[in-house]
């Protein structure tokens, strides 16, 4: 269904982007040890009196695929929203390739321009797709490249078509989102995130609004992104088989902190934490 032609080649830039950023980021102090693509340092987040994240530490290496699993309400979506600057932490710092998304060097807040430059390195795909319903598929894909990256329209269309082919929907360029199935819409949403050439891609339960057959075609696309590109993936999912297959590392969340993390093999076969075991039992039973 999805043709593999040129796919690895198309994603090549991402590996370049990662390499470049590792060079240029040399000035940041933590870069000397290890340049993380995303780094949460003692991050807490409260909504009113409700504390959702508690002193969270989480690091993702460039190109690493990390999956967050855990019970509903444990704070997984909140982690992704904080990384995408859709919300601000109550305490702590978050860095993207060594640069704080909250403060400048003098510990003051970032200007809109600084924030936007850093934010551009992240892309996000949502559970509800969030395609722009008043625009065609192609217009959805070229809006950000032409306005944010200031590409010419021809250039943006060319690259949009590459990604549409990649998700197997090149014949839907002129359709409106409402004319597509949920699975097709989500594949378009992934393509729309990828045309911005993010170095980090955040995926929040991107198949949980879909029927199983449609979920499959979306997961196929993510598998290929995972295997053939060097983009860092931070995934939240309830699809345990998919998590096991695609992740380099799994982090188990409970009540706002990571209770256990490790390679999928270990988490799924020999979990150490009692609560991990309870959680896995509850989801694998279903």
């Amino acid at each position: 269904m999805l043709s593999a032609t040129n796919f690895s080649q198309q994603l090549q830039f991402e590996s370049n982007a990662v390499d470049d950023s590792m060079d240029e980021g040399g000035a940041a102090p933590h870069a000397k040890k290890m340049m993380w693509s995303i780094e949460f340092e003692k991050v807490s987040k409260s909504f009113g009196s409700h504390q959702v994240l508690v002193d969270l530490d989480l690091q993702v290496r460039p190109g690493e695929k990390v999956t967050l699993i855990g019970p509903s309400g444990s704070g997984k979506t909140t982690v992704l929203r904080l990384a995408m600057t859709l919300a601000k932490p109550t305490r702590g710092d978050i860095r993207i390739f060594g640069e704080s998304i909250l403060f400048d060097a003098d510990k003051k807040g970032l200007s809109a321009a600084q924030e936007s430059r850093i934010r551009r390195r992240c892309g996000m795909v949502f559970q509800q797709y969030n395609l722009f319903p008043h625009l065609t598929v192609l217009q959805n894909l070229i809006l950000a490249p032409t306005t944010v990256l200031r590409q010419s329209k021809a250039q943006a269309v060319e690259s949009a078509m590459v990604y549409l082919r990649m998700v197997g929907l090149q014949d839907k360029a002129r359709s409106y989102p409402a004319q597509l199935s949920g699975g097709q819409q989500q594949r378009i949403a992934i393509a729309r995130a990828l045309v911005m050439k993010p170095e980090i891609l955040l995926l929040d339960e991107i198949t949980s609004a879909l029927d199983p057959e449609l979920a499959g075609e979306v997961l196929d696309v993510v598998r290929r992104v995972a295997h053939e590109s060097r983009v860092s993936l931070l995934i939240v999912t309830h699809e345990m088989r998919f998590a096991r297959e695609v992740s380099d590392r799994i982090a188990v969340f409970d009540r706002g902190s990571i209770i256990e993390q490790g390679v999928p093999e270990k988490i799924f076969t020999q979990p150490e934490n009692e609560r991990t075991r309870t959680f896995l039992q509850s989801v694998l039973d279903h």
Binding site: L86, A112, R119, R120, L143, V148
Partner: peptide
Amino acid sequence: GQFDACHALGLSKIQGFSRV
């Protein structure tokens, strides 16, 4: 979600408002 999508794509507030 439309506001979130604009932000995630890097659109500025004004770009998101006027285009989406």
